[in-house]
């Protein structure tokens, strides 16, 4: 009974502390039409302290979502356009010589912000990507001999264009693995696009985004997410799903054995758990269910499961494998 009371209390706390989500959503709704799924995932990444990789064709409001989100959450925001001639110093900063004092002074790069939009991350060479991904992992940057911690919260939202691969540097799998989720940004529906068009037709000044959330609220919410109860059954379900990507034959999916080059890493298991808890928080629940897992499993696993040549020949994608796995792994 003690556990039940604790969960009920946690549920009440979550209901109170999650109010900022509604406020932020209201602000986002004034600027963004549709894309509610993407916005949910951005909140999940924020609550679970993860980073996002957004993939979608240009013009789907990816930048607008991130910019508005950062503004509404009262978080500092930097947009970095990745280019082939970029250097790591352009990202993390460098030491600048001051002739007056005859000393080197650090100049911090644009990575020093709460929310970073790494636009078209695959346009820069590997060393620049590595610099950013190292910052994502370590949450700190070293300029010269001094190591500087990055701000909290620190969230990177990187974008990729799925249609233009010429002159790009594909992210290595080890670096892709550092993104908690890979979100596919889809076209808006007919009605949503109609509304986008009607709003865009009015020539007016840029809308001022009100800051409706304080960072402290985010930190408190993160604390609550940590306390969300995840039953052993759900934990085993998560491990089952990840294991099925590595050993499909153990789950009656022998056909996938030759289709999957390699499966998801243990980091995927951790992110699946964290994202499930964050999803449960968004649902105002003090406990995670398999429903939470299923809601985010595609986003967490799609960039971690690599199709083999055979699979590519049959035009099978990671999403097809995940769907097959979900259809065969029994829900607790």
């Amino acid at each position: 009974m003690k556990q039940e009371t604790e969960l009920e209390m946690l549920g009440r706390e979550i209901a109170e502390e999650s109010a900022f989500i509604d406020r932020a959503r209201e602000v986002l709704a004034t600027t963004i039409i549709g894309q509610s799924g993407v916005i949910d995932k951005v909140f999940i990444a924020l609550l679970a302290n993860g980073h996002l990789l957004l993939e979608g064709v240009p013009g789907l409001a990816k930048t607008l979502i991130v910019r508005t989100f950062a503004a509404a959450m009262n978080l500092s925001f930097h947009r970095i356009q990745f280019t082939p001639d970029m250097l790591p110093a352009d990202l993390i900063g460098t030491m600048i010589y001051n002739p007056k004092t005859m000393e080197f002074h650090p100049r911090k790069g644009p990575v020093f912000a709460n929310v970073i939009l790494a636009d078209e991350i695959n346009r820069s060479p590997a060393k620049v990507q590595s610099a950013l991904l190292e910052a994502m992992q370590e949450k700190q940057v070293t300029i010269g001999d001094v190591t500087y911690p990055l701000g909290e919260p620190f969230m990177v939202l990187a974008t990729q264009n799925p249609v233009e691969h010429e002159g790009t540097y594909m992210l290595p799998e080890a670096q892709l693995d550092r993104f908690m989720m890979k979100i596919m940004v889809e076209y808006p529906t007919f009605e949503e696009e109609l509304e986008v068009m009607q709003r865009a037709s009015a020539v007016q000044a840029a809308v001022e985004i009100p800051q409706v959330v304080q960072p402290e609220e985010v930190f408190r919410a993160r604390g609550l997410v940590d306390r969300i109860y995840v039953d052993q059954r759900v934990q085993r379900y998560i491990v089952d799903l990840v294991t099925a990507t590595r050993f499909p034959d153990r789950y009656g999916l022998g056909r996938l054995s030759t289709m999957i080059e390699y499966g998801a890493s243990p980091r995927a298991t951790i992110f699946l758990l964290l994202a499930s808890k964050a999803h449960a928080f968004l649902q105002r629940r003090a406990y995670a269910t398999p429903e939470d897992v299923k809601s985010i499993v595609y986003d967490v696993l799609r960039h971690r499961v690599r199709p083999s040549y055979e699979a590519e020949a049959e035009n099978m994608k990671a999403e097809d494998f995940i769907r097959n796995i979900l259809e065969h792994v029994q829900v607790p």
Partner: peptide, 10 residues
């Protein structure tokens, strides 16, 4: 049943 299984209800 979900509440019993996942929310540790008794």
């Amino acid at each position: 049943a979900d509440l019993v299984k996942f929310a540790d209800r008794r």
